[in-house]
Every structure is written in C-alpha cells, then in structure tokens.
Amino acid sequence: MDEFMLIFRRDHESKENQPSPEDMQASIKEWLDWKGSLAAQNKLVSSGNRLRPDGKVIKSDKMVINGPYAEIKEAIGGFIVIRARDYDEAVEMAKDCPVLRAPWSGSVEVRMLVSESNS
C-alpha cells in the first residue's frame, strides 16, 4: 500500500462559480460521508485540512503578493491523504470526491507521497 495526497482545487474567484450558502450546507454531508467512507475502508491516512481562499505568495525575489492563485482561476481548497494499492485505485477513490460535483465543479490532483520504500 502506498500513500497518496488528494488535492482539491476549485474556482474561488469568478462570481458566477461561487456556491450559495444553501448549496454549501447541502454539500457538507456529502463531504462528511465521503471521508467517513474512506475511513470505514481503513484507507484514510489523514483527514487533512481545508484551506481559506485567501493567502500570500512569496516569489523568489522575496516579493510578496496576495492570493495563492497567480495564473489560473482554480486554487487549492483542501487536501487529504489516503492509502491505496496503486494510482489506479487512488484515482478510483478520488472519483467519488464531492469537489468534482456541483456546486464546486472543481478538480482533484492525485500525488503519491515519497516514502522510504518508494523514494
């Protein structure tokens, strides 16, 4: 078993892509049930964290700019770490992630963690 980070991205900027408070409320249960499902399969390594949409970026010249999202509209909204046999299984698990559906319509990036055995 390897560990994979699932990174959730969505558009935090465009006005028309922001969920209503009701939509958000309705989506909470989906997220809780999805994480519960991963935990019930003993495949959730870390519940991770949600990130606030605002942030700072420090460039190589130490210039500080606002917002983590310089070139693209989508920004990281949160992450978790799961346990899976391989990329195929990790991707299948990620396909159930609520971020892919309305009202978020975002994306999931799947990245294998470097461990001592696979470095």
């Binding site: 519960g36 935990a39 019930a40």
Partner: peptide, 24 residues
C-alpha cells in the same frame, strides 16, 4: 443521520472493523 456522522468522525480517529460495519 446523527449516528452516521458520529461514526464518520469516530472512524477518522480510530479505525475498527466493528465501527466500519456499524457505520454502514
């Protein structure tokens, strides 16, 4: 619904097969 959410959280703290079954 309350029991389900409590199991969702319990399993995130400590996995056990019996909790996974009860959650389902």
């Amino acid at each position: 619904e309350n029991i389900l959410q409590l199991y969702n959280q319990l399993l995130q703290i400590e996995y056990s097969p019996i909790a996974a079954l009860n959650r389902t």
